[in-house]
Amino acid sequence: MASRPSCTGFRCQRIYHLTHTDWLSRLGQNVLAPLIAIVAILTVAVLLRWLAHRLISRLTTGVAAGGMPKIPHPRRLGPTSFERRAQRARTVGSLLRSVSTFVVHGTAFVLVLGKLGIDVAPILASAGVVGVAVGFGAQNLVKDFLSGIFMMLEDQYGVGDVVDLGAASGTVEMVGLRVTTVRDIDGTAWYVRNGTITAVGNSTQHYGVAVVDIPIGYSADVEHALEIAGEAARQAVAEPPLADDILGEVDILGTQNLTQAAITIRLTVTTKPGKQWAVRRALTADVKTALDDAVIAAPLAGLAGLAGLATIARS
């Protein structure tokens, strides 16, 4: 009667048939089978990670390079829109690759522990309890991270943008998953937690608008003043260096405000992102010079203004 191995299973029977050794068949059953399964798990994990990273890279590259209108509208897309799109795509791609690596490697680790005969149920239960405790104690930190992720995905602002975050306003120097660093006009660096940001005002995204308000006296001809101001502004934006920063035509909006001392007229022009302040300063100087040359009445101040109003009323 032929002897039989003390273990069961296909691999055990096969090894015993080849070697006729009981201990070697048991060793193959207890060691070789889990080893083969672990190698298979690790191989599949490496392939899945490679495929996920390749797919994410192709998607982010396609998003960065395509999907843009052939002729971008100046009020929607500034000259840096392509660069911002590529930067955001790279940021999101890096984040997705990190998440995919964590998920694939974490799953493979749990499966390998199971093949080694380790009961993973208590480990998962303990990890869940620890995760809940840590999440409850660090809920502000989790909120900051989630807010930072959504800010990057939505491209609310980036490094170099001029923003108003409520708690601080200025130029963005660093955007992290937890903290955004903003330097204000006085040079103070503000560290704002992403979870505390409820509203973002971005002054340098896509395009800017230079708003020029010029006060004139009550005795001035408003229509004539608007004509002179508009012509001076059009000449200024048609020549360098302002011409390089302009995306649209000068809009004459007319009378903006009435006070006791002056009438305020307003004109606007669309500019490249971040150039609206320099354009506004230059246009203000040029328009003011043109109005002075045309002898447009200047606004009065204080009691003199009130006296002037009374004189105009009596006449």
Rank of each mutant, 00 (worst) to 15 (best):
S94M: 15
R26Y: 00
V120L: 10
Y207V: 02
D22L: 00
S126R: 07
K272Y: 05
L253D: 14
A225L: 12
V182R: 00
I197L: 00
N30R: 07
A168N: 06
V39G: 10
L300P: 03
L59Q: 07
G137Q: 06
R178W: 11
A229K: 04
V63E: 05
G131H: 00
P79Y: 04
T43P: 04
W23T: 00
A40S: 15
R85T: 15
L48E: 09
F10Y: 11
R14A: 09
L77V: 05
V212S: 02
I263N: 00
M152C: 08
L309A: 10
T91A: 13
M1A: 12
L24S: 00
V46T: 13
V110G: 07
D251I: 12
F109G: 10
A262D: 13
I197Q: 00
T188G: 10
T259G: 15
R90N: 08
R90I: 02
L303Y: 10
S100F: 10
G28C: 00
L141P: 01
G135A: 06
K288V: 08
P74V: 10
I185R: 14
P5K: 02
V99T: 11
V172R: 03
A108P: 12
S94K: 15
I228C: 05
L146D: 06
A37S: 14
L59A: 05
D22T: 01
N30H: 06
A210N: 06
Q235E: 15
T271V: 11
T198R: 10
G114W: 05
A108W: 10
L153R: 06
R178V: 15
L116Q: 01
C7M: 03
R90L: 10
V63W: 08
L116T: 02
R266P: 01
L291N: 05
A133V: 14
F102K: 00
V212A: 03
W23Q: 01
S81C: 05
A108F: 12
A304F: 12
G78A: 01
Y207S: 07
Q13R: 14
I312F: 07
Q13T: 13
I149P: 03
C12H: 00
L42P: 03
Q139H: 13
R183Y: 06
R84Q: 11
L124F: 05
L242I: 14
A86C: 02
D251F: 03
T259C: 09
V182M: 04
G274Q: 11
V39I: 15
W190V: 06
L51V: 12
T171P: 04
A210I: 10
L27K: 01
I71H: 14
T255V: 14
T43I: 13
F136Y: 12
K70F: 07
A133C: 10
